[in-house]
Design a protein around this nucleic acid. Structure first.
Lengths: 272, 272
DNA sequence: ATGCTTATGTGACCGAGCGCACAGACAGCC
DNA sequence: GGCTGTCTGTGCGCTCGGTCACATAAGCAT
């Protein structure tokens, strides 16, 4: 990870991986324009439809892209942490996003003006490659979430969501309330309460008033739906240049009625 | 819409809007490389993980991006028609997609090799702008679908899906079976049967063995969830250069518990 | 301590949509 | 014509998660 800039070396935590993947000279130019800003919990970085003045590269915070429907129902389309950035809409055109971006877990982020980012984007193919690869990873995450929301249980999605957050932070503690999780998963707070209680009773996590501690990461993966692995693998694949070949997926919609895949091995907890 | 190429003027139906939005000289160069290919129903254009050799610009067909989960459950993340293209993964890096793309409604499409498309993408900022704007529109659609899947009824989503398809085709007939729709919405075929039957009984549509005729487009919009309008408006906004300002969205997750938005006006059909 | 606010636990009831198991009905083909 | 495969309609029991309505508890300020 580059550490050229004095401003950047102030940070004690890990840096942002997407920034770190840029070519050294690009990074050097950008570094002089980066500001380290504190991101406070539940802060709305940008409301849906408002123009993005800056792109944010999380260092120790986690940002959630959330939709709110008429009537107040909510749902998240993607999580952003130190692997990526908030603001792909800047270089994909439009400067505005359809979703609200809010800080789910407090921490720091680097930010850079939309204009400076666009300059670099237009300046080199390599920079475009990195930023657009991340865009594709974000797309994959959103896309998987769409299907996950449709088919997986609250408990499975809770596990997935905890793991995704954990991957973006050091340590094994998450400062999250059940209400916050409920908003991202688009379910009732009580639903999270029940699912979390079950996970605690089998020793996967402990939690207490807004702090969740993951005790058994592997166990949590076993209870999560496949979506966690799918998203994670796609992210890792796209972080590498040139692209790694992707694992072939054995199923095809074309054959849905003919070749049914084998039933899944159910790894669900009993209700009580 | 440009009609420079002899090859292109053979088409009787409408051309592809994304192609048509490109600068005339870019379009001219691409046109010589475009092939008009027939897209047959349920054909899988690319399996998840396989490399995209071509980008496809639908003219009279509709393509669906579908996920299949372990166990065979399915769900669509986006619809692509003559407003856009299949293959944004080509220029966003990786050349491979995480989803399967299959032809939902037969017709024609232009295709161009991935390399030729990349050449143009790197050649001008204007071309990048157009292609990336469409990418953002696709992202917005996927993102909205994620939340829609979570909160809206089968009937609402059926209406949304019919309207999205209708927008991408001339006329008011859709060659779609209930089974195909069920796959995209990720529900049982029987569920579509019930919802469609209700829509027919109030005179919004008629249908018969794989052919759906929309009788009352406005009525259908009233029964659809908000997601249809949201996606449509975002697409229209992004088709214009420079970007039109986006309608401000009145809700904010930040305030979810404090300022509850007013309850929605329920425009749902009774179950029977 | 004494409250107050925020976070979490629980239970009763209900409804949309699922799985399953059929029964018709239409279209193409020999 | 009759056969066959595809498409559509219907009923029944079940379950997850939603709504509503509280109870409890942990942290914080005075």
């Amino acid at each position: 990870m580059p550490t050229e800039s004095r401003a950047l070396s102030r940070v004690d935590g890990p840096n942002n991986q997407l920034l770190g993947s840029l070519d050294p000279d690009v990074y050097r130019r950008l570094a002089s324009q980066l500001e380290l800003v504190p991101m406070i919990r539940d802060q709305s970085i940008c409301l849906p439809g408002s123009k993005l003045s800056h792109a944010y590269f999380p260092v120790s915070c986690v940002i959630s892209l959330v939709h709110m429907l008429e009537g107040g129902a909510t749902g998240e389309s993607a999580v952003i942490g130190n692997e990526g950035m908030l603001g792909v809409a800047i270089f994909t055109g439009g400067y505005t996003m359809a979703t609200e971006a809010s800080v789910q877990i407090e921490g720091n982020a680097y930010r850079v003006s939309a204009e400076a980012l666009m300059d670099e984007f237009n300046r080199s193919e390599s920079t475009r490659n990195h930023l657009l690869r991340y865009t594709l990873a974000l797309f994959a995450q959103t896309s998987q979430t769409a299907v996950c929301n449709r088919h997986h249980s609250v408990q499975q999605r809770l596990c997935r969501r905890l793991l995704l957050t954990l991957d973006r932070l050091p340590g094994n503690e998450l400062h999250l309330t059940q209400e916050q999780i409920a908003i991202t998963l688009g379910v009732r707070r009580e639903g999270i309460s029940e699912a979390a209680s079950r996970l605690q009773s089998v020793g996967l996590i402990t939690y207490k008033r807004g702090k969740i501690t993951v005790l058994d990461r592997n166990g949590l993966e076993a209870y999560a739906c496949e979506c966690y692995q799918v998203v994670k693998e796609e992210c890792e694949r796209l972080e590498n240049t040139p692209a790694l070949p992707r694992k072939q997926h054995p199923y095809s919609v074309e054959r849905r009625r003919r070749v049914r895949p084998p039933p899944p091995e159910v790894t669900r907890l009993p209700r009580h």
